[in-house]
Simulated scan of single mutants.
Amino acid sequence: MFDRPRELLEVIEENIPAMIQSNEELLDHISHCRIDANESRETYEKMMVGLETLKHQLLEYGTGQIYVDDFIGREIRLRDDYNDYGDSGDFRCSAIILNCSNNTRGGDRRIQRGIWTALQNASLYDEEEKRDEAIIIKVYLPLAGISETFAEVTKLRFLDHPCVAKFLGIHHSDSPIPAFVYMDHLRSLKIYRESTFCNLRVEIPRFLEEVVYGLEYLHSKKLVHMELCQNTITVDFDGNVKLTGGCLPRLASFPMDKESIGVGDFAYLSPDVLRGEIYVACADVYALGLLIFELLLNTRCFDNQRMMTLDLFTSKVDPIGMNDVINKCQEVNMTESTKNLIVWCMDPSADKRPPVQVIAEKMSDFKTEQCAQNLRRSGFQTRRHQAVKRVPSKQAS
């Protein structure tokens, strides 16, 4: 009767080492699981942080790019300066690029161009409401060397300032880079001054004030205007500044034949940008200094150096000496503070120029500047709002 229990005890005794080993292995496994769980928790926490960052990036990208209005060709009609009711049919980026490809400014009069961009007024046609909305289209020219604009569009989508043009959306036609669409018909400050009666004593300080406030806002959004001059500063038909030049800081693109091409409007680029450094906010400040000098003295910067080659100008540029800033400011009885501000902005060293906020604080001084009081009323050089019969283009077919 006692044989069976004895046999069971012997079997149990034989299995005790295996049970102990199994328990030890189980405890080791539990220990590894706890370590893995802790590591997994840390990985999960890092993943959640990464997902939160990604969520914000996707929200910003979606609002700025995915949901940005993408206008179709039939919605856009180019405005004809010769006929206010003209309709040119579907808009194509290539048409503007082609008109600007000869690198001259004597082409289509509707196109306002800078070094790297071209602007053209147009109308946005709403088929449902049967009405037109005034717009202006900005196109990047091939010389700009732009490959994509996603990040730039994202930034532009959120801009909201009275001195910055309202960005409406983009338009894809036959160009790799989309055209940018802004609200309202705009024209360059240069064209406005030449085609409109205005009291320069009042208007010039106002122009400068609005340009500075617009630049200050762009810089606060980590954007720059780039190629800032009277040809690229845009105003509405009432003369209110509406900047369309907001873009991300980048390297400036130059023609390959710098040894043979004239400097032209490249003269408004700061020495550091001409030498190949990135165009950042202080380069806008340099161009702003040139603009203040031009408008208060009713002159043109680097007037005697425009025919120099771009390569030679880059090596010789001396903004204060070439423009004879000190003597010309004294000739018009400019105050010492305004003269010093201009010289400060034109400093060849990028890190020595003032931030635009400092210039904004001195804007009120321009209204009482003696040289501004000596400016005369501008006169018409071209006519406004007069429709004349357009001569058909020889290239039209």
Rank of each mutant, 00 (worst) to 15 (best):
Arg306Ala: 05
Pro319Glu: 10
Ala281Gln: 14
Met363Thr: 11
Arg34Glu: 11
Lys222Gln: 15
Arg250Glu: 14
Ile76Pro: 01
Pro162Lys: 11
Lys155Arg: 15
Lys328Leu: 09
Asn121Phe: 04
Asn23Leu: 15
Pro142Phe: 06
Ile115Trp: 01
Leu310Tyr: 05
Cys100Gly: 04
Leu27Tyr: 04
Glu203Tyr: 10
Ile137Pro: 02
Thr53Met: 13
Leu124Lys: 06
Arg187Trp: 04
Arg131Ala: 03
Arg306Gln: 06
Ile177Lys: 04
Pro392Phe: 08
Ile320Thr: 12
Thr309Ala: 02
Leu78Ile: 15
Leu251Tyr: 12
Gly50Asn: 13
Phe158Cys: 07
Arg377Gly: 05
Leu59Gly: 03
Gly107Tyr: 00
Gln370Asp: 07
Leu141His: 04
Ile30Gln: 14
Ser123Ala: 08
Asp303Thr: 10
Asp236Ile: 02
Asp351Cys: 13
Gln230Val: 06
Ile66Asn: 07
Glu148Asp: 15
Pro319Leu: 05
Leu51Ile: 12
Val325Arg: 06
Asp236Asn: 15
Thr154Asn: 12
Gly289Val: 10
Gln57His: 06
Glu209Ala: 13
Gln395Cys: 14
Gly114Asn: 00
Lys328Ala: 08
His29Asp: 13
Leu295Ile: 07
Tyr67Lys: 15
Glu45Gln: 09
Ala287Pro: 01
Phe150Leu: 11
Lys258Glu: 03
Glu133Trp: 03
Ala165Ser: 13
Gly86Pro: 00
Leu58Met: 09
Asp70Ala: 13
Asp174Val: 08
Pro17Val: 10
Leu186Trp: 00
Leu223Tyr: 05
Val241Pro: 03
Leu189Arg: 01
Val181Gln: 01
Pro142Lys: 03
Phe91Trp: 12
Tyr61His: 06
Glu10Met: 05
Ala179Cys: 06
Gln373Pro: 07
Leu291Gln: 05
Tyr61Glu: 01
Thr368Tyr: 14
Asn327Met: 12
Glu14Lys: 15
Leu288Cys: 00
Asp126Leu: 04
Tyr182Gly: 01
Tyr182Ile: 02
Tyr192His: 08
Arg275Lys: 15
Ser40Asp: 11
Trp344Pro: 07
Met308Ser: 09
Lys394Asp: 12
Ser94Asn: 12
Ala122Gln: 00
Leu218Tyr: 09
Lys362Ala: 13
Cys329Ser: 05
Glu39Asp: 08
Asp108Val: 02
Phe150Glu: 11
Lys258Gly: 00
Ser337Phe: 07
Thr104Tyr: 01
Gln305Glu: 15
Asn99Lys: 14
Leu295Lys: 08
Thr43Tyr: 07
Glu128Tyr: 14
Phe266Trp: 10
Met322Trp: 05
Asp87Pro: 00
Tyr286Phe: 14
